[in-house]
Design a protein around this nucleic acid. Sequence first.
DNA 1: CCAATCTAGTTGGTGTCACGAACTAAATCA
DNA 2: TGATTTAGTTCGTGACACCAACTAGATTGG
Lengths: 160, 160
Amino acid sequence: MEGGRPSRHEGVAPLDTMDALTQLSFVVHAMLERTAAEHDMSIVLARMLGILRDRRPTVNELARLLELDKSSVSGLVARAERRNFVQRTPSADDRRSVRVSLTEEGRRLTTAITAEFGAEVAALLSGLTPRDADALTRIAGTVVLSSMHRHGIDLSQVRE
Amino acid sequence: MEGGRPSRHEGVAPLDTMDALTQLSFVVHAMLERTAAEHDMSIVLARMLGILRDRRPTVNELARLLELDKSSVSGLVARAERRNFVQRTPSADDRRSVRVSLTEEGRRLTTAITAEFGAEVAALLSGLTPRDADALTRIAGTVVLSSMHRHGIDLSQVRE
DNA sequence: CCAATCTAGTTGGTGTCACGAACTAAATCA
DNA sequence: TGATTTAGTTCGTGACACCAACTAGATTGG
């Protein structure tokens, strides 16, 4: 948890696995936060827009995807709608539910943020050898997939 | 940004670098959040306690370490003090400033959370071959250090 | 050596985002 | 059809984030 403690033996202490992973996650998180902030967005909002790039979920589905309470998502969508990033469309088959989708402006913004963030990630990894960069991608992918698997994930669900 | 999009060609799409890294960071972040939440803490609070494990910084130094405004930290410390996790000690040399340190209870909790989180990280990586686990640790460490370097970091600063 | 300036920390105002509980309206079940 | 479940919103509360304004203590330069 928030390692980054310096060794007192000059030079830099090699990070143990937990610290390295935690710190890496903070670095990426902070990067995403900065990128989003440049467009006056929070991470959660950016995340939601990212999800909406190729989905038109209901509020409930969105809540599952974001692992948030539906009341939280309701507010999130309301704020996003106020800013013209998303729109709510009454669902055809179930008159209780609503489909959330990107507006044109939302899509534009999402594309821009994705590109900027991608560039930052690239810069972050620019110091690695191609071998290591590939290895990181591959191993991170493995971990993520197995984690989803462990949490009993659907995936390839939720589409309209 | 928040990939996790399924390929429509059956099976699982290999994640590109940006997605893999982002998702990994979300997975770790969520793990930390759950672990902290089990002790009724936020990530930020847990992070601060982690920092305090071997430091007695002032509010200002804490703000720099956490990359937060000092007013945010002021409140954070106040809430933590109310819950008996930390204590404020007037600084000896500068009567304006305050040193923040863990209480016994704070230390106990920090140790517990660190252990639990470490176990979760281990579980997360349990599916990897030892080779890959080592590679991940090493590469993540490299990225983190170079990122700190790029942001012009001190490190091995701030101690009392 | 003291007035001007800077720095440390707190306080207060505002906004986002999290939650649970209570509620409406629509669907489903029995 | 009446009872229950489900989708979504609203409301109240709390943690955190920021900035701006403020107090009190340090520092500096004439």
